[in-house]
Simulated assay, not measured.
Amino acid sequence: MLTILDKYILKRYLVTFFVMILLFIPIGIMANLAEQISKMIDNEAPLNEILMYYGNFTLYIGSLLFPIFLFLSILFFTSKMASNTEIVAILSSGVSFGRFLRPYFIGASIIALLMFLMGMFIVPKASAGFNEFKFKYLKKGRQDRVTNNIFTQLNEHDFLYVSSFDPARQIGYNFTFERFDDNDQLDFKISAANIRWMEKDTLYRLTSYAKRRVRGETEIMETKRRLDTLFTFDISDLTPVSYVAETKNFFELNQFIEDQKQKGASNINAYLLVKYRRWALPVTAFILTIIAVAVSSIKRRGGMGLNLAFGIFVAFIFIFFDKVFGTLAEQAGFSPLLAVVIPNVMFGLTAFYLLQKAKR
């Protein structure tokens, strides 16, 4: 059962957190609008799409900054309590430091659950709208996917390759499709100068088509200048957008990763990194809560300003390590799980040290 102390601290915890979000998100929207409005006008972005973009922007950016908002809000109101000697009075009344932390852990649990549900089910849809608008109007003409040397394993038997892919024209060059039988022997191989998706006719068009069938010791060749045909894969299977993992909810992401593993996707680490980061967010909320309380519960000569400065420094260090290990996982083959775990372990140990120091 919550006591008066629990309700007091929990109320300040949640109110400060949500007020900080309400204060900073509009500032972020105005800064982004001032930077991008010329591109929106030049590319003739419709007003309704702009409004939808900023709705998605709010959810997308807010989810990324949730841990930082949480950290700074705790620093702010706890430093204020320390400056008003409220914490000294609470601890002097016989309340242990561990008992004092209880409402903070309750608040962290509420925020962690909110972050988890949003990250798994709400933010992915917002991410899709945010990125689609960005590449359609703000980064028009820039590629939003890998377009060179694309190799994909469609299933246990089928493999395809294109040397380059133009997503705007939906055409792939130097196309190769191979099918192997149950004994891993080549059944047939199709090659073409290019493959193009004909959306109007819902079929694929192959140029300079050649098909080689293997039947024992015999090879059967078939060639055509042009062939319209069907395949079981979608044109998007050639090269999904770079942010595709961010746009999938909990269930879709798990299935997508399994499919990509079967296909032998080269950028599987990027997808795993997104998955592990979603699971790590609630843990991060607790770690940052402990650090913030440990730092700001002590009354200092520098007052609230010193605590906030230290808090911003810690936040930037956390982001730095998160980005460094994330980049290593995506580009250097480093384990995505370790890339997520190591920063949390480092700051978890820091939180434990600062907590013991604060108790003394």
Rank of each mutant, 00 (worst) to 15 (best):
residue 109 S to W: 08
residue 349 L to P: 08
residue 200 K to M: 10
residue 90 I to S: 00
residue 324 V to T: 14
residue 216 G to H: 04
residue 8 Y to I: 00
residue 64 L to T: 13
residue 254 N to S: 11
residue 25 I to H: 02
residue 145 R to Q: 05
residue 70 L to M: 10
residue 163 S to Q: 06
residue 65 L to A: 03
residue 257 I to V: 04
residue 266 S to E: 15
residue 174 N to F: 12
residue 332 A to P: 07
residue 277 R to P: 09
residue 231 F to D: 06
residue 359 K to S: 04
residue 222 E to F: 12
residue 43 N to W: 04
residue 358 A to H: 04
residue 39 K to Y: 02
residue 179 R to I: 12
residue 183 N to C: 04
residue 54 Y to R: 03
residue 293 V to N: 01
residue 247 T to D: 07
residue 253 L to S: 05
residue 157 H to A: 05
residue 223 T to M: 11
residue 197 W to G: 00
residue 118 M to C: 15
residue 25 I to M: 01
residue 286 F to M: 00
residue 155 N to S: 12
residue 61 I to S: 11
residue 280 A to Q: 05
residue 195 I to S: 09
residue 294 A to D: 08
residue 2 L to N: 08
residue 192 A to H: 03
residue 219 E to I: 13
residue 318 F to R: 08
residue 231 F to H: 03
residue 151 F to Q: 11
residue 319 I to N: 10
residue 31 A to P: 13
residue 165 F to V: 04
residue 195 I to D: 13
residue 268 I to A: 11
residue 308 L to K: 09
residue 279 W to S: 05
residue 216 G to F: 05
residue 71 F to G: 02
residue 146 V to I: 15
residue 21 I to M: 06
residue 359 K to Q: 11
residue 283 V to D: 03
residue 315 A to K: 12
residue 247 T to M: 02
residue 260 Q to T: 09
residue 97 F to D: 03
residue 218 T to M: 12
residue 169 R to V: 14
residue 181 D to I: 11
residue 240 P to Y: 00
residue 284 T to D: 01
residue 49 E to T: 12
residue 60 Y to G: 15
residue 40 M to H: 01
residue 86 E to S: 12
residue 184 D to T: 10
residue 287 I to N: 04
residue 133 F to Q: 03
residue 36 Q to F: 14
residue 131 N to R: 07
residue 162 V to P: 09
residue 325 F to Q: 05
residue 259 D to S: 14
residue 265 A to C: 08
residue 51 L to P: 08
residue 49 E to Y: 13
residue 84 N to A: 12
residue 325 F to K: 06
residue 310 F to T: 15
residue 2 L to Y: 00
residue 95 V to A: 07
residue 67 P to Y: 09
residue 278 R to Q: 07
residue 110 I to K: 03
residue 111 I to L: 06
residue 150 I to M: 06
residue 235 I to C: 06
residue 226 R to V: 14
residue 127 S to G: 11
residue 179 R to C: 14
residue 52 M to V: 14
residue 344 N to K: 10
residue 149 N to F: 10
residue 301 R to K: 13
residue 311 G to V: 09
residue 292 A to E: 02
residue 8 Y to C: 03
residue 275 K to A: 09
residue 228 D to G: 10
residue 331 Q to V: 15
residue 35 E to I: 09
residue 136 K to G: 00
residue 190 I to Y: 02
residue 186 L to G: 11
residue 338 L to D: 11
residue 112 A to S: 07
residue 323 K to V: 13
residue 41 I to S: 13
residue 349 L to D: 08
residue 302 G to N: 04
residue 73 S to C: 11
residue 235 I to G: 02
residue 341 V to M: 08
residue 303 G to W: 00
residue 271 Y to V: 14
residue 207 T to Q: 10
residue 283 V to A: 03
residue 214 V to H: 13
residue 225 R to Q: 14
residue 288 L to H: 01
residue 273 L to A: 11
residue 352 F to E: 04
residue 235 I to T: 05
residue 184 D to Q: 13
residue 38 S to V: 12
residue 182 D to Y: 14
residue 257 I to C: 04
residue 187 D to Q: 12
residue 284 T to W: 07
residue 121 F to A: 09
residue 269 N to R: 12
residue 266 S to F: 15
residue 197 W to T: 01
residue 170 Q to M: 11
residue 108 A to R: 05
